[in-house]
Design a binder for these strands. Structure first.
Lengths: 359, 359
DNA sequence: GTTCAGCACTCACTAGAGTGGAGTGCCAAC
DNA sequence: GTTGGCACTCCACTCTAGTGAGTGCTGAAC
């Protein structure tokens, strides 16, 4: 084994490329940094010549080549074909994100957009989340996903039965966080308004103050058979609302950006197909958050059609509790610092906003 | 002017190509029919040789060529370049749709899908419309747009004020068609539950039975200054709900199909960009319906980025009244008979379903 | 032993030439 | 009006260099 071990741990600080070499010597890290940065900007394989002028390198292209070869051996870079430049691998992007990328920030225009957005934001939460996804897409040129707060722990503030027809009523539930849920109920027999009102009041007494997920199925009988039937139908409806895994709402904005990110129309199609599946997306974002990451690159998230994509996630917290998630989807060669900065800023502002309104 | 007028009206019945020549002689119509049908199937320019075997033609390719030249002169066909076959123009598709296409129908599988869908359809209207858009996309391989019923004429069935905080309440309105709308209200001063209930009752008395769009702003004073303030805030909130042009909800399903329909990624991007603009889409569908068309082809609808698309629209009616719109978006070479059949069948079933639930 | 200039080599990309074939328009004959 | 025949057009494809960006290796210099 004649070659030296290039992947050894090396604590030397880097001078220009980033805060931390994190397992690569300073020059290799600087080279990797330059390759990733340039590739993100140009989408073209990067040759050794393009890297020599990068800060922290200052060696000849021959030396850069030998370092690049080592980086390729270690899995940070890849070569589309023998006589081409290098492209970062998922591992290369990962190292870039973890150790090299300096924290980004929005430019003046972006900051103004955010300020303006939250100054003028109005309307109910769903609208707001929908529009937030559009804002994020504009800021980052990625597709933005916003998952609304889960209502699992929210307490029931109001329950009401509204007659829509002789045998049809609508159960309307208001939760403490301002969410409104509804479920229509069809009765076997006609129910008059008085009975409906009576049943509604009983129902309210039974569940007010409890979370929607914890509605007890047993209710004390009133003695009136028909009223009891209405009440138990109401309880069933409530429980079905509470158990609905439908729960988390997803808002996707800027899906057209995916078409701009790839030139293979097949890739675009398969990514869009994923985005249409709410459950898949919500689960994906949750999984990434659960692993403790804020960025999932390429195959890290395990969704095969998104292998050439990276996802930035950011929890939105309201009063310390998680109240939603922000996700940004772009090609692996997306602008990570910008995406992270945008997600953080918008997530924070959104959290503040929700906590103002929420309780 | 040596050439004869080939676009003259001609009443002769066609033998095989369709019910009506509609301004072209029978053979030209048959040729156009064959070209459009084959082009829809193959997406390749169609040459004279491919057409001679089509029903209703039975002449030599030379004759077909001269007819095709005439059809091109009259604007029904186009040639990508001198030595290529012909492609239908928008006008050609229009003629095909109006006079040639025999009414299509869903295949057995499609019919089963529809039946199954409406047998198992459950949940509230929004969910249902969302899932309907997915069904339509599956059936037709187009992008489906479903516009929900407008609540303009629906009468207010219930109004409620729910306290969310000392100075925050939620106004919840239930309409006769089962729609629930909400608006949060922030008060300048704290409002106790009793006052809120009192104000809610007054509000209800004031507006119950009126359409949301016709809420009178004047309310009789109660004498209690603070209650009056709450009531007038409630009225303001109601009127803002009623005047909200937000109104019509749009559900888009199967936008990934657009990526399969075109191979130019630019086209895909611009189409997706349009689809992200709810207001544009809703207005577009409305405009097409208002012109009395059920199909808008290519540049007919005037939205430039959709110039290579066609749109099939179908009103959904509940008890004779228009209660929503179905739209199908595909490339101009989409399968019109199938799209029209699917839109009609699903629209009808959806209408029935909504009328069962609605009142 | 790290760095570097020099060198031979690789291979995608491009341009140009040649070819086949699908398709056309025209025309004289039926 | 219809048709077979014919010359023509021009795209799509293949093949052939030629170009150039990029590589890996090596031996000498620091």
């Amino acid at each position: 084994m004649p070659t030296t071990d290039d992947s050894r741990i090396d604590d030397r600080r880097m001078d220009a490329a980033g805060p931390d070499g994190g397992g690569l010597d300073a020059r290799k890290a600087a080279i990797l940094n330059a390759v990733v940065s340039e590739y993100i900007a140009s989408a073209q394989p990067i040759g050794s010549q393009h890297v020599v002028d990068a800060p922290g390198v200052s060696v000849s292209s021959a030396t850069v080549r030998s370092d690049m070869a080592a980086l390729e051996r270690d899995g940070y870079l890849d070569q589309p074909h023998t006589s081409a430049g290098r492209i970062p691998t998922d591992k290369g992007y990962r190292f870039f994100v973890d150790h090299l990328a300096r924290p980004g920030s929005l430019d003046a225009l972006g900051r103004q957009q955010v300020r303006q957005f939250f100054d003028h934001a109005h309307g109910e939460i769903e609208q707001m989340l929908e529009r937030t996804s559009g804002l994020l897409a504009d800021l980052t040129d990625c597709t933005a996903m916003v998952v609304g707060p889960s209502h699992d722990s929210a307490v029931i503030r109001s329950v009401q039965l509204v007659a829509l027809g002789p045998r049809l009523a609508l159960l309307v539930v208001v939760l403490a966080d301002g969410a409104v849920q509804k479920q229509s109920i069809e009765f076997a027999d006609e129910v008059d308004e008085a009975r409906l009102a009576e049943a509604g009041a009983r129902l309210a007494a039974h569940v007010l103050g409890a979370p929607l997920t914890r509605v007890r199925s047993k209710v004390a009988a009133t003695g009136d058979r028909s009223t009891d039937a209405v009440i138990s139908a109401g309880v069933r409806a409530l429980r079905s609302l509470g158990s609905a895994d439908a729960g988390d709402q997803l808002f996707v904005g800027g899906s057209s950006r995916m078409a701009a990110a790839f030139d293979a129309v097949d890739t675009v199609r398969s990514v869009l197909t994923i985005l249409e599946q709410q459950l898949v997306v919500v689960t994906l974002l949750r999984d990434i958050l659960d692993t403790g990451l804020s960025v999932a690159i390429g195959s890290e998230h395990g969704v095969e059609p998104l292998a050439s994509c990276a996802i930035v996630v950011m929890p939105v917290s309201v009063g310390g509790e998680e109240a939603g998630t922000i996700g940004l989807l772009g090609p692996t060669r997306m602008n990570y610092p910008l995406a992270l900065a945008a997600a953080r800023v918008v997530g924070d502002r959104l959290g503040e906003r929700l906590s103002e309104a929420g309780r």
